[in-house]
Design a protein around this nucleic acid. Structure first.
Lengths: 107, 107
DNA sequence: CCTTTATATGTCAATGATAACATATGTTAT
DNA sequence: ATAACATATGTTATCATTGACATATAAAGG
C-alpha cells in the first residue's frame, strides 16, 4: 500500500506549484537562474520591501528551492535544485502556446 | 517596449501555476491524460461533489487547459493542450529529486 | 409537459495567502 | 559598548480561494 507515499508525493507537487504561483517567488527563482544574489540585491532588483523578500525566501528555502550562504553581513541565495528551472521552462512553453493560439476564451 | 507583453506572459505563468496548485484540478488533469471523461465519471473517480468538480472544470476551461464536448446529456472533457503534461511531468521529476535527497529541512 | 438525469451557476461562510508594518537578531566597524 | 548595516521574524489587516449548499439550465424519455 503505497497510497500514503503517493499522497505525500501529490502534496509536494501541489506545494511546489503553489510556490511558483506567486510573482515575487517566481521572479526570485528566475533571477537566481545563473548566479547567486544577496537579499539586498534581490530587493533592489525587484523593488519590493525587504521584509517581504525575506519572507518569500524563507518559504522557498523551507521547500528546498533555494539555499543560502552567509558571507560577512550578507546572505547569498542560490537555487538549491536547478531542476526547478525545467518546470518553469516547460510552463513557459505551454504559456507561449496558449498565448499564441488564443483561439477560444478571448473574451 | 515589450515590458507589457512580458508582464502578460508572467501573469499567465502565475495563473497556470495557480491552477496546478490545487489537488482537485491537478487530479482532473492527470485523469484526462489519455482519455476524455464526462463530468460524472470525474465526480465518481475523485469522490468529490459534482458542483465542485464543475466549478474547477470551468476554471480549467477558462484558462484553456481543458475543452469540452457535449454528447447528448453528457459533457466530455479532455486536455486542450497536452503540453501541460510536460509541466506536470517535470514537476514530478523535481519532486522525486527533493523527496529522495531529503537532506536539509527535515524538521 | 412533467420527470429524470447530467451539468452549470450562484452565494456565502470558513480558511488561507499576501502585503504592510514593526521589531529583533546578527555582523562589522568605530 | 554603540552605531550602522543586512537580514529575519512576528503580527495583523486585507484580500483571494475553497468547500458546502442551494438552485438553475438543458437534454431525453415517458
Amino acid at each position: 500500500m503505497n497510497t500514503n507515499e503517493e499522497q505525500n508525493f501529490k502534496n509536494e507537487m501541489e506545494a511546489v506549484f503553489k510556490l511558483l504561483s506567486n510573482h515575487i517567488r517566481l521572479n526570485i527563482l528566475i533571477m537566481l537562474e545563473n548566479k547567486q544574489f544577496s537579499v539586498n540585491e534581490i530587493v533592489e532588483a525587484l523593488g519590493i520591501p525587504q521584509s517581504q523578500i525575506s519572507h518569500q525566501l524563507a518559504i522557498l528555502k523551507k521547500h528546498q528551492l533555494v539555499s543560502s550562504q552567509k558571507i560577512g553581513k550578507k546572505n547569498f541565495y542560490k537555487l538549491d535544485d536547478p531542476h526547478i528551472l525545467n518546470v518553469i521552462e516547460s510552463t513557459a512553453n505551454h504559456v507561449k502556446h496558449v498565448l499564441q493560439g488564443k483561439s477560444h476564451s478571448e473574451v
